[in-house]
């Protein structure tokens, strides 16, 4: 059962890069775990740490200004590449609840939703504006999933789109499999017809 989610307010971390692929979000050497938890420590590993395991001071995740961030603001085609669900697991385990980007790779978008993380899509110009405002570590945004809008503390508010059924599931914390099993008779019927086809 996922945790039901209606709104989220949190500090913003600006990651001003586009085409961030899932190999960067969680490098392959950390995919050998057979659990869903504990991936946060490896998030953006090679951007965060140098070859000796020391923190890279020039990477935004290592900047103490953003240590409380729960909203990741980033560039287009976020989450491209491998289908690894370890990517949203790592983001959420680290503490992110929301990603805001101009676009996402299809598989990542789905994987995020399955884990109760909100992938918000906004225009690039709006994101760039907030990206600049977030630089000092003091930008807080509120994502209202029910009302489908994002607002900052200066009263700026923008709407976003999300398919209604995804929204419904997030707000209610519904389990996909349980929902599908309501249609189990139809699945069985389909299988019977197929056998006789």
């Amino acid at each position: 059962m996922l945790k039901a989610i209606e709104t989220h307010t949190g500090a913003v971390l600006p990651l001003n890069r586009s085409h961030v692929d899932t190999d960067q979000i969680i490098p392959k050497q950390f995919l050998k775990s057979i659990k869903r938890t504990g991936f946060g420590q490896f998030l953006f590993y090679h951007w965060r740490f140098d070859d000796d395991g020391n923190k890279r001071s020039d990477f935004v995740l290592n900047d103490p200004k953003f240590s409380d961030a729960t909203i990741l603001l980033t560039g287009e085609n976020f989450g491209c590449g491998s289908s690894r669900e370890h990517a949203p697991w790592a983001l959420m385990d680290y503490g992110f609840k929301v990603v805001i980007a101009p676009s996402y790779a299809d598989i990542f978008y789905n994987n995020a939703l399955k884990n109760g993380m909100i992938p918000v899509i906004l225009d690039e110009s709006i994101i760039q504006d907030w990206m600049e405002k977030a630089a000092d570590g003091k930008l807080t945004l509120t994502v209202d999933l029910k009302g489908q809008h994002v607002s900052d503390h200066n009263g700026k508010q923008v709407d976003f789109d999300i398919p209604a059924y995804h929204k419904e599931k997030l707000i209610n914390g519904w389990d996909d499999i349980a929902l599908t099993l309501h249609h189990e008779d139809k699945i069985t019927q389909y299988e019977k017809q197929k056998r006789h086809a």
């Binding site: 869903r36 289908s83 690894r84 669900e85 598989i107 789905n110 994987n111 399955k114 884990n115 398919p163 996909d176 499999i177 599908t180 099993l181 189990e184 699945i187 299988e191």
Partner: peptide
């Protein structure tokens, strides 16, 4: 098509997937 692990679990349990 490729799917995430939650969808793998869904296919295991139901042999089906919700797809747009």
């Amino acid at each position: 098509f490729g799917i995430g692990t939650s969808e793998v679990e869904h296919v295991f349990a139901t042999q089906s997937l919700w797809q747009e």
